[in-house]
Design a protein around this nucleic acid. Structure first.
Lengths: 163, 163
DNA sequence: TTAAACCCTAAACCATAGTTCATAGCAATA
DNA sequence: TATTGCTATGAACTATGGTTTAGGGTTTAA
């Protein structure tokens, strides 16, 4: 009835390497975990709740140090509710910011993918390359493309003859 | 008319430390940047386009190595369009996955915030603590809370007397 | 009771993404 | 032409988040 869990069971449950759990413990993230007389970690069911919270914060990129701070607040009982709330609200803002950054940049990536997928992707890219090469030439800067102008046109002609 | 830009101007434009730009160059992310006879990096306007792409990939957590791979593909011209598209599609999947993870976990965080914000947050947390303490006691494991049972009840009474 | 499977710690090691420092060369301006 | 402010490199250093290894104890099941 009164079941406890080994580090391996916890690792399996949370799909984490055992070494990571030991590392978290060393960093002070698991002050709630008991040890038996031989020094083995003994996890109880309620520890899973704490660890789930740790994973949640980790999944949203909270640094280990801040997670420790949060867990330490939790261990101090009801008197820290306000501080915990403040921490989570700040963290929520960080996550929202990250979401906006991902959203914006994902849109750019999709734009590129569409360009690469379009029927005239080759013509589009050729024009881009031409533009860069023209500019670099005017400024007397080296042509950054592996195939220089000549080779590029040669590829161009080859492509035509292949059609 | 034919304007070029110093590393400082680029750094300012992209809001990046100069050291980071040098670091990216060392890692091979900036093969398109020229140097003058004194070894100074000379950026052209079209370089800004490449760097914007680098920032876009960095903002979505693509590793430096992979960004280098992508940029190298770009420098090889139209023959690599398919590979580039594949890379970006894979990356897009990664970003979508990250978005889902953030979404899920943000929801959990908001749930916690709401709990901490509710009128009976103190009662809720007290019950949580009680549950953990009961379980730990039954399993003969140490009480992980800083204030033990007695101290907790004392706090409890104190709280009541304060009302 | 013994082998296989587990668990422990400490310390070294690794990858990633930069930053800082020492030293020195170039550029613009007064 | 001298000072100030840029620029360069290489090497060392930092921080983060782990993983690996060495050496050794514990548990379990046949």
């Amino acid at each position: 009835m009164k079941k406890t869990y080994s580090i391996k069971e916890v690792a399996t449950y949370f799909n984490l390497p055992i070494s990571t759990i030991r590392y978290y413990d060393k960093k002070g993230l698991l002050p709630f975990v008991s040890k038996n007389t031989s020094g083995y970690r003994i996890f109880s069911k309620s520890d899973f709740g704490f660890i789930k919270t740790i994973c949640c914060l980790k999944n949203t990129d909270m640094p280990i140090k801040d997670i420790k701070t949060y867990i330490d607040l939790c261990m101090r009982g009801i008197s820290t509710i306000d501080q915990r709330k403040k921490m989570l609200n700040q963290h929520k803002e960080n996550v929202l910011k990250k979401q906006r950054i991902l959203e914006r940049n994902l849109f750019e990536i999709e734009t590129k993918i569409n360009r690469y997928s379009s029927d005239d992707s080759v013509e589009i890219i050729k024009k881009q390359i031409d533009f860069v090469q023209d500019e670099k030439e005017q400024l007397h800067l080296k042509n950054p493309f592996i195939l220089g102008r000549k080779a590029f046109f040669w590829t161009n002609n080859l492509k035509r003859s292949l059609i």
